[in-house]
């Protein structure tokens, strides 16, 4: 149990564990690890209560049902669950906001941070859907398959991210 009660693993061990998850993903689901298309599954299903015509959009219809789509929704729910268990086992639960934001934003208030978090979340998933993948789908899984599109997307992601990180926030 002691490995589960540690506050931090080396990033190498943590990365190896994620890489090994490709084995059940490929052998049992016939797909690679990914997280961002589950946002479409969840939001299109919720939106269909208000606007049933969303299901006439092919992109929405392709994402609302089926084993692969719900597997990925379960995967992100599992991520929250695993992180919850891990942080409680190690006595490292967090609350509120990370102290990094006060340092990065200067005039930091909870409201400003929540607005930035909402905006960032919107932009992040919007971009991931245009690129058809995020840090896991294009990054971890795409590069591991030597996919050219994933090399391009990850280069654009880190390139734009590095510029934005220095323009938007103070150095932390």
């Amino acid at each position: 149990m002691s490995i589960l009660t540690q506050r931090a693993w080396s990033p190498y061990l943590a990365g190896i564990v994620v890489g090994l998850l490709q084995i059940p993903a490929f052998l049992l689901m016939g797909t690679a690890l990914g997280t961002s298309s589950s946002y479409v599954t969840i939001s299109a299903n919720l939106a269909s209560f208000v606007d049933p015509s969303i299901l006439e959009i092919k992109y929405a219809a392709n994402h609302v049902a089926g084993a692969k789509n719900w597997w990925q929704v379960a995967l992100i729910v599992g991520i929250a669950l695993g992180a919850f268990i891990s942080s409680r086992l190690s006595g490292t639960p967090r609350w509120g906001h990370s102290p990094v934001w006060a340092k990065a934003m200067g005039a930091h208030t909870p409201l400003r941070r929540n607005m930035m978090a909402s905006l960032g979340g919107f932009i992040m998933v919007f971009g991931a859907r245009i690129a058809d993948g995020c840090t896991s789908g294009h990054g971890v899984s795409g590069i591991a398959q030597l996919a050219i599109g994933s090399f391009i997307a990850v280069t654009a992601m880190f390139g734009a991210g590095m510029i934005a990180a220095n323009l938007i926030y103070k150095r932390v």
Binding site: T35, S36, Y39, S98, V100, W101, M116, A117, L119, G120, G121, F122, I123, M124, V125, F126, G127, A128, R129, I130, A131, D132, C134, T135, S136, H138, G149, S150, I152, A153, V154, T155, A156, M157, F158, G159, A160, G161, M162, A164, A165, I168, Y169
Partner: peptide, 19 residues
Amino acid sequence: DVVGGAILGVGIVIAGACP
């Protein structure tokens, strides 16, 4: 890949998180 990847990168920075 270029446009979406770049937007994703900016969003990750603002949010401080990936999807």
